[in-house]
Computed example of a mutant assay.
Amino acid sequence: MNKIGIHYGSFVSNWMDDQFPLIRKVKELGFDLLEFGSDFLLSQDDEGLLKLKTEAEVQNIDLTISLGLTPDQDIGSPIRAEREAGKSLLKQTAVAMRKAGISDVSGILYCAWNGKINSYDEKSKRWDNSIASMKEISKVFEDNGVYINVEVANRFENYLINTCDEALAYLDQVESEHVGLHLDTFHMNIEEESFVTPILKAHKRMRYFHIGENNRKMPGLGMMPWKTIFDTLKFVGYSRPISMEPFVRPGGEVGSAVSLYREMMDLSDYENDLKRSLAFVKSMLK
């Protein structure tokens, strides 16, 4: 049975806005899971981590982490200090996850989110750097009994892994059962030739699945072929979390990071729009 989740960026304008109240909010909206930010997680001391864990248990909500490395934390960078900063952040995340009872972190955590390189020739060396870094990082995740998932994201948001095939090659070289795969329909819509083939290829190693429309609205408000997508997920027996990631709020750090500079939709009935989308997703899974 798939747990249905939602990304915290659907509710906040800035990455460090208080996310604790969102645990109760997503429960009230009918979701099973909240995907919240690594920066917020790492801002908590042990008491705060226990508080997060306890509130999630009280609300019967699963927690998972979203993470995007910044250019000065790029584990594929040729600059050692940047690689070390990224490795340190991810290792700290693994320990904090264990303390908070969280099993998975997913995102662009193999290079810089929204990072650029000057030429295609740089990619090979950065790939090797990222693999070496991830091998080291994965051992900390193994020791803490938690998982790190490589999100396949479009070429405009990272330079290293844009297709499912690239992600599978990356996992093959890292060689850790605690490094999984994360597909996202918004990114697949840009980079893949099919929604079906990547899911068929990835399913045994896929630990997380993002659902978002071609326009980054919530499912049901765009032109994604949802029946095909959900039928394929059911065909491969995917039973792990499915999380929607609508970005429709302009303004603040979140709006800027996802290049949202216009009014996407009327937000006056936003929570009911989320409920309707959740009902749509559940109907697709039946």
Rank of each mutant, 00 (worst) to 15 (best):
D46Q: 13
F186T: 02
N118P: 01
E193K: 10
Y261K: 05
E35H: 02
E28K: 15
T228W: 05
L33A: 04
K91C: 06
D32F: 08
Q19Y: 05
E263P: 02
I4M: 05
A81D: 13
L33Q: 10
K275A: 10
I75L: 05
V258H: 09
I4T: 09
G115V: 08
L69P: 09
I117G: 03
I102T: 00
N144S: 09
M188G: 01
N129R: 07
P250W: 07
E55Q: 12
I229N: 01
N60T: 03
S119V: 05
F235V: 14
K201Q: 14
Q92F: 02
C164D: 03
H182G: 01
F141V: 12
N114G: 06
Q19E: 15
F247G: 00
K275S: 02
N14L: 13
Y270I: 05
H210L: 00
Q59L: 05
H182M: 02
S103C: 08
A169V: 11
P21T: 08
K125Y: 04
G180F: 06
G252Y: 14
V248E: 06
S43Q: 07
K53I: 04
A153L: 15
T197V: 14
Y147G: 01
F186H: 12
L50H: 12
V95S: 02
F36K: 03
G48L: 04
G222W: 01
H187M: 01
G68N: 01
H210D: 09
L278M: 11
I6L: 10
H182P: 04
E271D: 15
A81P: 05
G48M: 08
E142T: 15
C111P: 03
V179R: 03
L69A: 11
G86N: 03
I211N: 00
F195S: 05
Y270Q: 12
A202N: 03
A132K: 15
G37S: 15
A94E: 00
S268L: 10
L181I: 13
N129T: 08
A169F: 10
N2E: 12
Q59R: 14
L90T: 00
R83V: 03
G251H: 08
D46V: 11
N14P: 09
S88F: 09
K125E: 06
N149E: 09
L285P: 03
M134P: 12
E177K: 15
G107T: 08
D39V: 04
S13Y: 14
D128Q: 15
S38N: 12
L233Q: 00
Y238W: 11
S133Y: 01
S130T: 15
K25V: 07
S283L: 10
I65Q: 05
P21M: 09
E177W: 06
W113P: 01
L49P: 07
D121V: 12
M188I: 04
